[in-house]
Amino acid sequence: MTQLLEAFQIALNMIISGDPVVFSIAFRTLMISLTATLVSAFIFIPVACLIHFNQFRGKKFLVSIIQTLFSVPTVLVGMLVFLFISRAGPLGNLGMLFTPGAIVLGEVLLIAPIITGLTISALSGMGREIPDTALSLGAGQLQMVLKVLSESRYMVLTAVLMGFGRAVSEIGVAIIVGGNISGYTRTLTTAIALGVGQGEIAASIALGIILLSLAMIVSLTVSTLQHSVKR
């Protein structure tokens, strides 16, 4: 117990003193997760709109598949991305394996179902009234979609934050396609896994505290947004 408390104290000192290794890992993790979240939102919010505002055969089935993929194992996504970008894979010539770009690609795919599915839920929550009101006031199809997105913005932002939360805390993709290369592809989760394995408990706790803080910030923001929706 004493050893654990000592490690916790060292971890806090590392954070307070701004330990360059700890903070470079935290900064890299943030950059990778933010990039993945923004790219995924940029692609999959429009995809969610396309699915929601169009009627086609198998729509319900597609939505339930998307919802099932919310909890797809991160190692499975990591493995699939690995197969695609490894030298023998179809995208092997891009030379992406063991780069931050590979982690971004994997995380984009990992959080795509969350952003798509929760955005569809957010749009569905608007019912028929908002799109009908927009159309009846003379909106074109795109103006109507943008209005519905704007009206459901807090819920859509929640979807994006949930995606970010999943990206920042995942390990499967980062370790399989990132390779946990020090100073290059090492993220908070892979560094913690490695640190615990090598007995560097204090550094791992410091990284863990930062990861937990990020998760808490996301969670608090989500609940604040949800509260403002219910106003």
Binding site: I130, T133, L135, E151
Partner: peptide
């Protein structure tokens, strides 16, 4: 169709206001 729709307005049974 859009041009014709823009010359009329439908007030729904339970009107909703935007945020």
């Amino acid at each position: 169709r859009l041009q014709a729709r823009r010359r009329m307005v439908t007030l729904l049974q339970r009107p909703v206001l935007f945020r």
